[in-house]
Write a protein that binds this DNA or RNA. Structure first.
Lengths: 209, 209, 209, 209
DNA sequence: AATGAATGAGGGTTCATTCAT
DNA sequence: TATGAATGAACCCTCATTCAT
């Protein structure tokens, strides 16, 4: 029985290692960037030693790729479901989607990814491509889809949906970066809720027929 | 001809070297990031050897700081002048400012800085602070100033200027990053002009009284 | 056989490395001086690679300090015991102490330290201070103590003990340096034993009441 | 006339360069040792630039040799004259010689050489050999000569002159080093005069028939 | 599966030396 | 003769990666 408990504990431990290391790596990469982040740091945070990381990932670069790819899919899926599951008016859908998106902003883990992508896309074209295909393109399809439906239904005026995509999501992305990079230097904290409200209002007024 | 090249090479005096090295460093940092960019690369681009860099900058970090600080002031000043020099209606001022800002987007040199800042602000708080004070804060003051004047003059409806600041500038910043990071993966090139037009229209409609 | 070598190599654990590296460093520093001695040389002598040294010492300077400090204490203690353990006449004690001291002269390891100290004391005041406090001062206390006792007991005439300290020990120190620096250029090898005998005789005659 | 003055001034300047640089180099080498002393430092002290040094010396090593060799001959000659010029009793000659020697101790320039030799003899065998031949051997010849004459004349007892040579000069050499390396760490300054007096007394008593 | 001692290639930095002016 | 900008080899140090245990 004791042996059985042991075995279970060890198995769970082993299964848990991969996400634990990814989590630790995401934190560390997010704070310092890919190059400046040492595997020793990641290992310490994950509660293992450097050598152990190599049992789960062939090298630092692959670990980085895993960090990026495995941390995002759930979020995208969530977003797609918000839209697909309903047949609400486009403005309502857009609002819900942005509010869902805005929840990521303060998330200490996933929220670090955009900064990472921006910093390292040049050095890791493979990651950039993956991120573009799996996150950005899907996100853009979601949003432009809503915009198109809104136009078709007469809920939005005739707008350039590809361009407006930027107007819609950019403020949230910039807010995400701001929180991590500049809020500490500013007099007041960034009021994410107010920003969302204000931005949504601007969008609704701005796109109204 | 060889003699001529030599002469030219030697004519380049101390005062020419500094901007040459900064220029080369900006390119290199912009492409690969601070840590991944080797001094050898910078030196080669600047047409000198590694040792020469140390005649002009005490170390890599100070070179980085110089790159950031010396590349920005002129742009900010330009922006401030666009506004200060006129007493036009706020919407017109806003339009002119954004169009000026948009010109930076394709600039191969200065346009690389935002990415750099985002990537390295965490590792160089001093630089983050400098950038925040000298670029972001001044830019924000410019824009919120225009917004406030517009509200006061009845040209804009009552809006949250601090939040709207994000809605106004974020699309341009994201477009800047997009150009460098994702355009290559997208089917079509990003039409900056269309984006500006569309975004301005959205803003004008969205903030109209 | 290869397996055996391997095993031996791996059996050497952390605790064995430190003295091995210190020993190698002492040899190397002793031969070439601090600045001229490359870490690669030390590593090769210690049978490790450069990187390994940094697992045991934070940098070259700290390695140097360790070399000095860890190589000396045993010798001093030995000297103090020679004196403390007995209540012999002062001349006898002095003789024993000098003979003990003279044993260091040909020692290839510890014997290199005085040269090192002389060469680097200016660059490493901390080391100079340590050496002065832990070696020189203690040695001086030992010798002046014997001299004072000898005077008090009427075994020596009234002498300036602080000045005589130099007359007592200097010849041994100079002999130590001579062995390493000039013996090779001289016609005959330095006869340390004869030097000791002659010097002790001089001292005994010279300090006799 | 002005031209003439100029010419004279320039010639004098040029003739003065060599000793100026040697002087500056001796100071610098004496303070930091050969390796740790940068040519930039020497140049600055000599009031010239680095390049100028290469007009007078082919490289750093030759400059070092010049420093050693040109700084010593005068002193040796002085010592030899003190002895050769007289037919005084050996004890008196010895006393005069040691007092002459002791004058070097506080000399800030020449006094730095022994430390330099000790530090670098291993790295520059050529210099060690030169110093041994031109300084040490001649000094030893002087002193052992006096000792032999003293024995022959019945002024000294039968002693081992080669060994006693160390007993005679070592205290002065150690005092020289002490002044530069450890006096700053000691409670009291080293009283060179007292040391000479005490040492001479010891010698005279110790070698008396 | 996990460790952690060891490696070694690579980068930042220094500085003796060169050379056009 | 003197300068000082430029060079490049050499060295310290870091850290991703390996591997015996």
């Amino acid at each position: 029985m004791a042996a059985d408990t042991q075995a279970t504990r060890w198995r769970r431990r082993k299964d848990a290692r991969t996400p634990e290391i990814i989590e630790a790596a995401l934190e560390c990469f997010g704070e310092r960037g890919f190059a400046a982040c040492r595997l020793d740091d990641i290992a310490r945070r994950a509660g293992v030693t450097k050598g152990t990381i190599y049992l789960y990932f062939p090298n630092k670069e692959e670990l980085f790729k895993a960090v990026i790819s495995r941390s995002l899919v759930p979020r995208i899926v969530a977003g797609e479901q918000v839209v697909a599951a309903s047949d609400l008016p486009a403005p309502v859908q857009l609002e819900r989607l942005l509010l869902t998106l805005a929840e990521i902003i303060p998330s200490s883990t996933v929220g670090a990814i955009p900064k990472l992508i921006i910093a390292e896309a040049g050095n890791f074209p493979e990651i950039a491509r993956f991120y573009f295909d799996e996150v950005i393109s899907r996100g853009r399809r979601l949003i432009t889809g809503i915009l198109r439906r809104g136009i078709a239904r007469g809920e939005f005026r005739e707008i350039d949906v590809d361009a407006t995509f930027f107007s819609v999501v950019a403020p949230l992305i910039v807010a995400l970066l701001w929180k991590r990079l500049f809020e500490v230097h500013d007099d007041a904290a960034l009021d994410t809720a107010a920003l969302c409200r204000s931005h949504l209002q601007l969008l609704m007024h701005g796109m109204a027929p």
